[in-house]
Design a protein around this nucleic acid. Structure first.
Length: 649
RNA sequence: GCCGGAGUAGCUCAGGGGUAGAGCGCAUCCUUGGUAAGGAUGAGGUCACGAGUUCAAUUCUCGUCUUCGGCUCCA
């Protein structure tokens, strides 16, 4: 008798060994059709693999991550089978699943190359093979046999993988004419796969090491229903429309120029206005939280970065030192603001009563990112961090950390960022030698972060070994239009720099102590943040951020004076207005896309009887009717106030 | 940096060894008392840059730069 415990704690009894599929059938036919794999005591198994002892079982469908992974994993094998059909002798590296879909790294024989056009025929072949309904069969194999088999195939990639596996744990999966080394699990057969799209081809190093051979990586995604693929493709198209590079160009927020240089963004007037609104907002919040603004130069003596240790670690990846007329003198474009702030700290001796000191700067830094890494505003070579450094006593770390989390919450709430994740990065407990600072301080800092997050009710994931060598950290990630994760806000505890710069304060005991430094940047960088904000809002910014709040349109030239009066009047209310003094054809300009992005359109002179009034149109709502200009000002201010209300508490 | 696409008007793109093309935008004029439009005319290009092949290169070849998709990296 076998007892199977389901997630709802109910227990089903079976006469003898059962498969996941059997269990699903015993529940409902519908589930038997939908189930893709089965988790047995936490391990994901094939549906057809026999369970011969009591176990806790979860049936995975498309809605479960495990189900999707099984589906895509089998799809990768299907793709490999199709590729082997057209390119016999292809060597196969690894073929894992990713967030959406799967890829396979392959090495085509005789230096053949794959182009985008070839993907279609592979797709077709995959569908053909899928319809053959070939069973996917698992078998166990000894290490020796496995080595023999792939030696015969002359596939040194698989041989390398096998050589690292333990004998007795090696399994093969076969479908049709294709057999692959694989841990599994897989679908029972290929007919589950109904809709296939191979999305792209890219180069990738074998095992991610640039000293290794470059393989061809083929990406694809599959679905159990054609309709789901269609929806996915529509979603991708929609996402492309939100791309910040596209919107940034259309709205004239920022630009790049070959003449200026790669990865160096030019902020256009509207983009600058947007950015300044964000900066002002954060400055107000920071002021409330006891930060003081500072300013430091864009360059610094190379020695400064040698003291901080950054030169040794990152000197090669920086813009190279600038020589001066003086012999042997070298300066660097600053790659970070921290060393400058440490020097500010040292201006005069500090008492424990002075701490915490919170030093903020919108500091522009320059890093020579690899050319292939540059990407719109999200990865650039010159960018402005909304940087601040908090110098505090060890006993203040937790409280300061919580205050930083508060600030990040205020920002995310103000901009309705809900789809974020937070990750705590701690030491690797097995490798204490990797980290600087005393274990006691690390313990204190790590528990301070964990407790601070808990007390703030922040849901986090914890990664061991992901901490910086100088301290633990907390990162906030947010997804962009295409589902890629970007790191935005970051809070890092640092024991290293205070040490290197010999920072001190005099404690209540009249002894010298070392302060703890907290680095934090809620936006991360203005560039990246604006990029994510654009994609998040698809260019429809909250009213208080909109680069063009209100457009005043005189319907003909004779209303120009009045339009100017209206705009002057509204300017008093801190609302940007744009007067276009062209004639009535202006209507053509303000339409479609542009109209969509301007919250308010005021038309002056529509009704000659009411020259004291304006016709108001609200984005997405259409005609709001005729209002007195002063009424409109109140109306808009009220709306902005509503959007801003509650942001500070 | 590496692999693979791409670079033609302000924007989106078509073309192709022999005066350079479209749509939108822009300009001028006409029409339209209008919910933001119709018509006519026109201006805009070293076809990214540099070499090579050729009688002739924007087109073919090579190199450089930039950009896009990945890899790697991210203080």
């Amino acid at each position: 008798m076998i007892h199977i415990t389901l997630p709802d704690k109910s227990v089903r009894e079976f006469e003898g060994a059962v498969t996941g599929l059997d269990i699903a059938k015993s529940i409902s036919n519908r589930l038997a059709k939908d189930v893709l794999s089965v988790s047995v005591d936490g391990q994901v198994w094939d549906l057809t693999r026999e369970i011969d002892k009591d176990a806790a079982v979860k049936l995975n469908t498309w809605d479960d991550r495990e189900g999707k992974e099984t589906f895509w994993h089998s799809s990768a094998h299907l793709m490999a089978e199709a590729i082997e059909f057209y390119y016999p002798g292809t060597k196969f590296g690894i073929g894992p699943t990713v967030d959406t879909g799967f890829y396979y790294d392959i090495d085509l024989p005789n230096g053949q190359v794959l182009s985008e056009k070839d993907l279609e025929k592979i797709e077709k072949k995959m569908l053909e093979l899928a319809r053959e309904k070939n069973d996917i069969v698992r078998s166990e194999i000894s290490k020796k046999d496995a080595l023999d088999m792939f030696t015969q195939k002359n596939d040194e990639l698989k041989l390398e993988l096998i050589s690292e596996l333990e004998d007795g744990t090696i399994t093969l999966y076969n479908q049709g004419k294709f057999t692959d080394l694989c841990r599994g699990p897989h679908l029972p057969n290929t007919e589950y796969i109904k809709a296939i799209k191979l999305t792209s081809i890219a180069g990738a190093y074998w095992r991610g090491d640039e000293h290794n051979k470059m393989l061809t990586r083929v990406y694809g995604v599959t679905f159990p229903k054609q309709k789901m693929l269609d929806e996915y493709l529509v979603m991708i198209e929609e996402a492309k429309k939100r791309d910040h590079r596209k919107i940034g160009k259309e709205m004239e927020l920022f630009a790049f120029s070959d003449a200026v240089g790669q990865g160096l963004p030019l902020w256009l007037p509207k983009g600058t206005q947007l950015r300044m609104q964000l900066e002002d907002f954060l400055k107000r919040v920071q002021k409330k939280y006891g930060y003081e603004q500072v300013m430091t130069p864009h360059i610094g003596d190379v020695k400064l970065y040698k003291t901080s240790g950054h030169f040794q670690k990152y000197g090669k990846d920086s813009f190279q030192p600038i020589s001066t007329p003086a012999e042997g003198e070298e300066y660097m474009l600053k790659p970070m603001n921290c060393p400058h702030h440490c020097e500010i700290y040292k201006v005069r001796p500090k008492s424990y009563k002075d701490l915490p000191i919170r030093m903020a700067e919108f500091g522009t830094v320059y890093r020579y990112e690899m050319s292939g890494e540059l990407h719109g505003l999200t990865r650039v070579r010159g960018f402005t961090q909304d940087d601040a450094h908090i110098f505090c006593r060890p006993d203040q770390v937790k409280e300061e950390f919580q205050k930083v989390i508060d600030i990040i919450f205020i920002i995310f709430k103000a901009l309705s960022f809900e789809n974020y994740t937070a990750q705590i990065s701690l030491r690797d407990p097995e490798k204490p030698e990797k980290y600087i600072g005393s274990p006691e301080n690390w313990d204190k800092a790590e528990s301070a972060i964990i407790e601070a997050c808990e007390e703030k009710g922040l849901e986090t994931t914890t990664e061991l070994g992901e901490a910086a060598f100088y301290g633990p950290k907390l990162d906030f990630m947010i997804k962009d239009a295409l589902g890629r994760s970007w790191q935005l806000g970051t809070v890092q505890v640092d024991y290293n720099l205070p040490e290197r710069f010999q920072l001190e304060y005099i404690g209540a005991d009249d002894n010298r102590h070392r302060p703890v430094m907290i680095h934090r940047a809620p936006f991360g960088s203005m560039e990246r943040f604006v990029a994510v904000l654009i994609e998040h809002t698809a260019g429809k910014f909250p009213l208080w951020l909109t680069p063009e709040q209100v457009v005043v349109l005189p319907i003909s030239e004779k209303y120009n004076d009045y339009a100017k009066k209206v705009s002057d009047f509204l300017n008093i209310s801190d609302i940007r207005t744009v007067v276009d003094d062209r004639n009535e054809k202006i209507g053509r300009k303000i339409r479609d896309n542009e109209l969509k992005r301007i919250p308010y359109l005021l038309i002056v002179g529509e009704n000659e009887a009411q020259t004291e009034s304006v016709s108001v149109r609200r984005q997405g709502e259409g005609d709001k009717g005729v209002m007195k200009t002063s009424e409109f000002a109140d109306f808009v201010l009220k709306e902005i106030r509503e959007q801003l209300s509650g942001l500070y508490n």
